[in-house]
């Protein structure tokens, strides 16, 4: 049973680099709450990426702690109170950094696979 926790942890770990990057990217379009981020990632990935709540919130809180994102309570258009996150300057730098790393890696993996 403790395995469930480990599964979560593994998933976070697998996605860690990419999830952070994807969340930061999503926040580039404007402040967003957790549910909004999930929905945005799903639509923009063509319904391929489904982010688990158990991965998203730990990631959000961790990034908040790293000061990559900042949070505040706001009311949505549907008049729902929600916690909105926005990327900080540091978060944007992190995104650029992550992205260049990601592109290098994709290129490297691609060149191996295509050889």
């Amino acid at each position: 049973m403790k395995s469930e926790r480990e599964v979560y942890r593994n998933r976070i770990e697998l996605l860690q680099g990419t999830l952070d990057m994807l969340v930061l990217k999503t926040l580039q379009w404007g402040p967003q709450h957790g549910y909004g981020i999930t929905q945005a990632l799903r639509t923009r990935s063509g319904e391929v990426l489904q982010v688990e709540t158990g991965s998203l919130y730990p990631a959000l809180h961790r990034m908040e702690r790293h000061k990559w994102i900042a949070a505040e309570w706001r009311v949505t258009e549907q008049n729902q109170r929600a916690r909105f996150y926005r990327a900080t300057a540091e978060g944007r730098r992190q995104l650029a950094n992550d992205r260049s790393k990601w592109e290098t890696m994709v290129a490297a993996i691609a060149s191996i696979l295509e050889a």
Binding site: R5, Y8, E52, T53, G54, Y57, P58, L60
Partner: peptide, 17 residues
């Protein structure tokens, strides 16, 4: 169903604090 084990999710989130 989609959101899964919420207490555990909260637990893991709190751990990051």
């Amino acid at each position: 169903c989609e959101m899964g084990n919420l207490p555990l999710a909260k637990d893991v989130t709190r751990e990051t604090w």
